[in-house]
């Protein structure tokens, strides 16, 4: 019978393939934070310059989608490099974020329709782009912590 091969002698500190990296994950989720910041800036500019043309204001309002798209692009590349377990954990976290954000949006929209107002927040038309990204970022991060805790 052939002997079982010994494991490679690379340093044990070397990262295994498909290893999860919290730093990389946070860097990636940073795109969502950038989206939120861009959203606040566009909100500020939009309110200060109502005289701008509709096209200019529409472009400004949709600007936060750019870092959002970069996030999705980076996320797909990030997930592709993970191993099967880490990919499943990311999927669970993503599901928590997506479902949670959808529920939060529906709840806020319903409250807005009923006339409920929260101080300092314009929620009459549901969650805005920036608020959606913020809720998604928060729930996604919480989802990663929960998913990783479950397999510990």
């Amino acid at each position: 019978m052939n002997p079982i091969p010994s494991p490679s002698t690379r340093e044990s500190a070397e990262r295994c393939a498909g290893e999860y990296s919290l730093r990389q994950d946070l860097q990636l989720n940073g795109w969502l934070a950038v989206s939120a910041v861009v959203y606040l800036v566009t909100l500020f500019l939009g309110r200060r310059h109502p005289e701008w043309s509709l096209g200019a204001r529409a472009s400004l309002a949709l600007l936060p989608l750019v870092p959002g798209i970069l996030y999705v692009r980076g996320y797909l590349g990030f997930v592709a490099k993970l191993d099967e377990l880490q990919r499943r954990l990311q999927l669970e976290a993503w599901l928590i974020a997506a479902i949670g954000t959808a529920l939060a949006g529906a709840a806020v929209s319903t409250l807005g329709t009923l006339g409920v107002r929260l101080d300092g927040l314009d929620l009459q038309h549901g969650l805005g782009i920036g608020q959606t990204f913020f809720v998604g970022y928060f729930l996604g991060s919480a989802g990663i912590v929960i998913a990783r805790w479950r397999i510990k």
Partner: peptide
């Protein structure tokens, strides 16, 4: 993990 090409957590 290295032999299998997965993470240690896996």
């Amino acid at each position: 993990a290295r032999e299998l090409g997965v993470s240690r957590q896996t």
